[in-house]
């Protein structure tokens, strides 16, 4: 079984979309616990992919296809998860701020967060503070991840932080920011909890903020 787990990791890393589902079924048939397949097979593979991406060893399309492969494996396992096993590592809201329609970076971050075991709720582009708060009140996320590609829309991120404070939710909900014109200094200035420079950094950050790395 250990060997098959290694093969699962390899299949994700090598983007073998035609193999992954069969391999996952195989270990499940052999009696492996579904959460072991996820935590020792699929997620570590995506961690490796994130590391390779940060080290510039792989390119964006390679990372994306690995994430797709991981997700195919995850879909096979998911229906078998029971009770506490099916709890995600946390819920992350993602959105591109109001006035901004750029979503490519945000979508990549979403795929990588899912790959790391988070529940991701994508609230789309041109996300107003009001619409975001509606969702916050009903779904109570652990983290809000905000993206902006325009210098003109970056100030919206600060508005989100302020609104969370005004509603007394700031202690409960972490805010992480990213996007081409965004910097760690800007994140600090507006009172966000962190900045992710790429999708792998965003995953690291989400883990730290949610306490999932403990």
């Amino acid at each position: 079984m250990g060997d098959t787990l290694a093969e699962i990791r390899q299949a994700v890393i090598e983007r073998q979309r035609d193999r992954i589902e069969g391999l996952v079924r195989e270990v499940l048939d052999e009696g492996m616990e579904p959460n072991v397949v996820i935590n020792n097979g699929l997620i570590p593979a995506m961690d490796e992919i994130g590391k390779m991406f940060t080290e510039h060893k792989i390119f964006v399309p390679e990372m994306l296809v690995s994430a797709m492969t991981m997700k195919m494996g995850l879909e096979v396992v998911k229906p078998l998860l029971k009770g506490a096993q099916s709890e995600p590592k946390g819920t992350v809201f993602l959105g591109t701020v109001k006035g901004d329609l750029h979503d490519i970076g945000k979508n990549i971050v979403g795929m990588m967060l899912e790959g790391a075991g988070f529940r991701v709720v994508d609230l789309g582009v041109d996300l107003t503070v009001e619409k975001l708060m509606e969702q916050v009140e009903t779904q109570s996320p652990d983290i809000i991840g905000l993206s902006a590609l325009l210098t003109t829309t970056m100030p919206e991120m600060e508005r989100v932080v302020q609104e969370l404070e005004a509603r007394g939710l700031r202690d409960r909900i972490k805010v992480m920011v990213g996007g081409a014109p965004v910097s760690p200094a800007f994140a600090e200035k507006i009172g966000a909890d962190g900045y992710g420079g790429d999708a792998a950094q965003a995953v690291e950050l989400a883990r730290r903020l949610s306490g999932a790395d403990r």
């Binding site: 390119f59 964006v60 399309p61 994306l64 490519i104 979508n107 990549i108």
Partner: peptide, 8 residues
């Protein structure tokens, strides 16, 4: 124009 990387 969009990236080929995310949509071939």
């Amino acid at each position: 124009v969009y990236p080929l990387a995310t949509n071939p």
